[in-house]
């Protein structure tokens, strides 16, 4: 089991590094897919089968497919690395350094901490996930579903708006010579 953990951990870390270092976006996306799959492996090791499968279906199967879809449609195969301005670079270094400091400060004392209660092997099964979602975390769960609904309505509204705009701007398009002749007559 421990060997499996180290295997998945190595795959996760290496693929995550490839995600940020790969020059071609498509390789980044594939590395991210591998990273997500190895994280699903971690979930299975913790006996959280439900989480593992939902993770694969939602992230690997839907979101990453859309990423790939966009990259394919825009044909972003070329490695484009626009140079950032000096201010952006300084800001990035400062932000990254602060984040690193926070991480070190958080982990420095955290390493020796042991979990106070025993690991419950049933915590990730469907029944316990459902129980905690619909009892303890009912309000956040419902609120997040409203958030999703509003996002969906927003997307539909934006899509409709553009369609209406396109339809209303259609007559402004230059008319063909034959059409102009017809209108004059």
């Amino acid at each position: 089991m421990l060997a499996l953990f180290y295997l998945f951990a190595a795959i996760s870390v290496i693929s995550a590094l490839i995600v940020v270092s790969a020059r071609s976006p498509i390789n980044s996306v594939i590395a991210l897919v591998v990273c997500f799959l190895s994280i699903a492996g971690h979930y299975v090791l913790l006996n959280a089968q439900f989480l593992a499968m939902v993770h694969i279906i939602v992230y690997t199967g839907a979101i990453m497919v859309l990423f790939l879809f966009v990259i394919m449609l825009l044909n972003l195969n070329k490695a484009t690395e626009p140079m950032k301005s000096l201010g952006t670079r300084i800001a990035a270094v400062v932000a990254g350094g602060l984040f690193f400091l926070t991480l070190v400060a958080a982990i420095r004392h955290g390493i020796t901490v042991r979990p106070s209660n025993e690991f419950d092997a049933g915590v990730g099964l469907v029944r316990s996930v459902g129980m905690s979602l619909f009892n303890e975390f009912l309000l956040p769960f419902e609120v997040s579903s409203v958030l999703f609904l509003s996002a969906m309505v927003g997307v539909v509204m934006l899509g409709k708006k553009e369609a209406v705009l396109a339809a209303s701007s259609a007559p402004v398009e230059p008319l063909t010579a034959a059409e102009l002749e017809r209108r004059k007559a």
């Binding site: 694969i56 690997t60 199967g61 497919v65």
Partner: peptide, 11 residues
């Protein structure tokens, strides 16, 4: 869900 996961990776 496992069946669905495999189908979604298949794409």
């Amino acid at each position: 869900l496992y069946v669905f996961a495999m189908v979604s990776i298949g794409v």
